[in-house]
């Protein structure tokens, strides 16, 4: 499958942190992510693991341009993404970042095929139906292309979101527990798909509990209490 037509970006997080305030309780100020730096390089798969509440998803959202960090910068290539106005940041996210969120992320009223082509619809770019169909076929959901997402099972929804991300052909892929609803066979398949994306110069970050994920990783990190350490 053709990938990003020569575009490849490095994602660089420089001393980013995220602090939250709770309205109740004694320890009302806490760091979900303590100051850290991270680089996602094109052509690599990075796996991030850790317990629930350790700050993995917060870090992924910061890298995706969805959550402004309390401190630090996130650069996509040379661009400091949080210095951009909403319109430009949104357009950049649409062009360059493919996100597979942790929970259900499809529009129930649209069909599987319409959901997969939705990013192209939003920015009126030419829909790459061939690529979409190839990924649907790879992820075994091609037969569901005309079914409304509201009628899919959890695993089918998950594979639809993954097919959508891969069809976007983005230079950066951020996947949050992408195999949460999948059986072993499909879990293996999904990790192989991400590996394949990295081989065509995408920078891939997978947040996962699955030990299998490490088999596909070039680099691996663990988060605990907002602190990230590299696994060797």
């Amino acid at each position: 499958m053709q990938r990003h037509e020569g575009k490849s970006f490095e994602v660089k997080a420089e001393q980013i942190s995220k602090r939250y305030f709770r309205k109740t309780g004694a320890a009302n100020c806490f760091f979900a992510v303590k100051p850290l730096s991270l680089t996602l390089e094109p052509g690599t798969v990075t796996v991030l693991c850790g317990r629930s509440g350790s700050g993995k998803t917060t870090l992924l959202h910061i890298l995706a341009g969805l959550l402004r960090p309390t401190e630090g910068k996130v650069r996509l290539g040379e661009t400091d993404i949080y210095s951009l106005p909403d319109k430009e940041l949104s357009a950049l996210r649409s062009r360059s970042v493919g996100i597979v969120p942790q929970s259900r992320s499809v529009l129930d009223i649209l069909t599987v095929s319409e959901n997969i082509l939705l990013p192209q619809t939003l920015y009126k770019t030419k829909a790459d139906r061939q690529s979409a169909e190839q990924w649907m076929d790879t992820l075994n959901i091609l037969h569901l292309r005309d079914v409304r997402a509201g009628e899919l099972s959890g695993g089918e929804v998950r594979r639809t979101a993954i097919a959508r991300t891969l069809s976007m052909n983005p230079p950066i892929i951020l996947a949050d527990e992408p195999t949460g609803d999948l059986d072993d066979e499909n879990t293996e398949l999904v990790f192989r798909c991400f590996r394949q994306a990295a081989e065509t110069h995408a920078a891939v970050l997978i947040v996962s509990h699955e030990a299998d994920a490490l088999k596909f990783a070039d680099r691996a990190f663990r988060m605990d209490g907002g602190v990230m350490t590299e696994l060797t």
């Binding site: 995706a64 969805l66 949104s90 996210r93 062009r95 529009l107 939705l118 990013p119 920015y123 959508r164």
Partner: peptide
């Protein structure tokens, strides 16, 4: 809410 969160995720601006 969720529908709009998905659209934001896929690159919709607030104005869109």
């Amino acid at each position: 809410k969720r529908e709009f969160a998905v659209l934001r995720l896929l690159g919709s601006s607030r104005a869109m």
